[in-house]
Design a protein around this nucleic acid. Sequence first.
DNA 1: CAAGAGGTACGATAAGTCTCGTACCAGGAG
DNA 2: CTCCTGGTACGAGACTTATCGTACCTCTTG
Lengths: 109, 109
Amino acid sequence: MAFPVPPIDEVDLGQVFRALADPLRRAVVAELVADDADAERACASFAMPVAKSTKTHHWRALREAGLIVQRDAGNGTFVRLRRAEFERRFPGLLGTVARLSPAGRVPHG
Amino acid sequence: MAFPVPPIDEVDLGQVFRALADPLRRAVVAELVADDADAERACASFAMPVAKSTKTHHWRALREAGLIVQRDAGNGTFVRLRRAEFERRFPGLLGTVARLSPAGRVPHG
DNA sequence: CAAGAGGTACGATAAGTCTCGTACCAGGAG
DNA sequence: CTCCTGGTACGAGACTTATCGTACCTCTTG
């Protein structure tokens, strides 16, 4: 039901930066950070101009980097930013990323 | 004499994150940020437990990502952080990186 | 001059990444 | 039941990265 994620203390900053190096993933993170609440969002609600399997790849990258939690609901999949945990582990990073790559639209493929 | 660097406005955030994903390079940047002044430092003054050619590779990665300027002095090579430019382009990023990966020692190989 | 330190360029190798197509699975709508 | 939507897993292809060794360069020092 819920995809496995690394414990927050085992999250590696290098892997986080590698995850944030991709413009698509960075846009997703920026959008999640911009959301006021930490509510779940449908993965399908993000505009990602790539093939289905590539989407899966990107979600996995974000999940394994420790940035998000994913929950499989049978039909759709839902995503939630690990905001509080992440903020405790890497203070200020999420804010900086969101400020630097404003969430508005996804790069036109 | 001076190695070419990209104009600050052409610096890509993705490339910056990719450069910062490597622990060796991240340590170097953190150390440069921690230095109060923006004086030049000898490249040889950084402890990098890798082969000479690998060092060249890492310095190039940082240079092409737009983080540093390098100057060839015949015998040694010197490096300087593009602090002010970078701060204008990506406000807060350098500070966040330095705070998150404290400059102290290089990861033991 | 000869030797050493610091560094680049090039080529090789191993590993990782991004992308996709195909096959397949679950749930909801007709 | 049949189709559509949203998704995973797997495998392939093209590209990038990290690492090294070797050859070569430049400057300083003995």
